[in-house]
Simulated assay, not measured.
Amino acid sequence: MQRLLTDHKNITETRLETVPSELLGSGQARLKLSSFALTSNNVTYAASGFAIGYWHFFPTGIEGQGLVPVWGTAEVVESNSDDLAVGTLLYGFYPLAEELVITPQSDGHGGFVDAVAHRAELPAVYNRYTPVRAGDADQDHIRALLQPLLATSYLLFDWLMDNDCFGAKQIIIGSASSKTGLGLCKYLAEPEGREYKIIGLTSEGNRDFVQGLGACDQVLTYDEIAQLPSEDSVYVDMSGNAQVKAQVHSTLGAHLKHSSAVGISHWDQFQPQVVLEGVKPQFFFAPAQIAKRREEWAPGVIEKQITQAWKRLAKDASSWLDVQVHGGIGQAADVYDALASGSANPRDGHVIRLSVD
């Protein structure tokens, strides 16, 4: 079994290794990955591996080396579980590897959770595996690429609405070219009669792409942050670029009513100790918003809304997303390196396919 290890201290250092397949115990099942997506979201997982706990999902047994989590589809190829049959296809959270052994337990809603002990205290949303139908590989690719990112986008939108946008009249999205950023822009643009303005921040090279989305009222490059209107604002930071965040804070001053940290795709420019003017940034953790809504509403309501929302945007994904399929886990290192270095094209959605239909 092959897997791609990532260095905890330098997340651009990876190495492919072959290890013996894990022996199955009682009640366990072996899942062989068929495909998974690689996006800037995976870079965030690596950059915040210990701060949030992503390195803990799939222990490697090697000091200083981790497995970056990915979203994808896998087939049950061996099972000692009475609940999970061989041949079942499961969509969910996997290691960047060719297979995963889980201890499946029914979640009571048609899906499964991995009941292995070390995942018990980790966020439940990452431990659920959903049966999917065999069919069009393109559907698997779109699901893996967009469902996790647009789910976060929608939860950000829901959180902003839940908090009345903190009284702001403009919402500024950093790294608006990212899939999560563009998703948030699109969800924010949906309500009729909205009373807030949507401003997308991006690099000069991605300006045309973000403008072409048609969701932002204004698009500014990082060199134009000083042009931000002096109005009450919320800043949603998708990149973790400390310099950009500092400029936004200093430009808006007391007009900045809330600053939210979501991703760390610009991990190499992330400096937690930077002193910022005004409000203190708060990290947005999507599972926390899910948990809040589950308590306020009936179980399954927020999940249904998320599903409807990401599928709604996915219908026109061909206008802003080019799916790039790479064969074999050996190709994953180059794709991950491009994402980690920030050189990937924002239109591209990368999928690693491990099996051929």
Rank of each mutant, 00 (worst) to 15 (best):
V19W: 12
V19T: 07
V19L: 09
V19C: 00
P20E: 10
P20C: 06
S21P: 09
L23H: 05
L23E: 15
L23N: 05
L24A: 13
G25L: 12
G25Y: 06
S26M: 07
Q28M: 14
Q28V: 11
Q28T: 09
A29S: 15
R30V: 08
R30I: 10
R30E: 11
L31Y: 07
L31E: 03
K32P: 05
L33R: 11
S34W: 03
S34Q: 15
S35Q: 14
F36L: 06
L38C: 02
T39M: 11
T39K: 02
S40Q: 11
S40R: 01
N41D: 08
N42R: 07
N42S: 13
V43D: 06
V43R: 02
T44M: 06
T44H: 12
A47C: 13
A47I: 10
A47K: 09
S48D: 09
A51I: 04
A51S: 15
I52N: 04
G53V: 08
G53T: 11
H56M: 14
F57C: 08
F57G: 10
F58R: 14
F58Y: 12
T60G: 11
G64I: 09
G64H: 06
G64T: 05
G64N: 13
Q65F: 10
Q65L: 14
G66C: 15
L67F: 10
L67P: 06
L67W: 08
P69L: 04
P69S: 03
V70Y: 05
W71Y: 15
W71F: 11
G72L: 09
G72S: 08
E75C: 04
V76C: 13
V77N: 00
E78N: 05
S79G: 06
S79F: 07
N80L: 04
N80M: 03
S81L: 10
D82V: 03
V86I: 03
V86F: 04
V86R: 04
V86A: 03
G87S: 08
T88S: 12
L90N: 10
Y91N: 04
Y91A: 12
Y91D: 12
G92Q: 05
G92P: 07
F93S: 00
F93K: 02
Y94M: 04
P95Y: 01
L96D: 01
A97R: 02
E98I: 02
E99V: 05
E99A: 11
L100I: 06
L100K: 13
V101H: 05
V101C: 02
V101K: 00
I102N: 04
I102A: 07
P104V: 06
Q105K: 10
G108T: 08
G110M: 10
G111T: 14
G111E: 13
V113R: 15
V113L: 13
D114H: 14
D114G: 06
A115E: 08
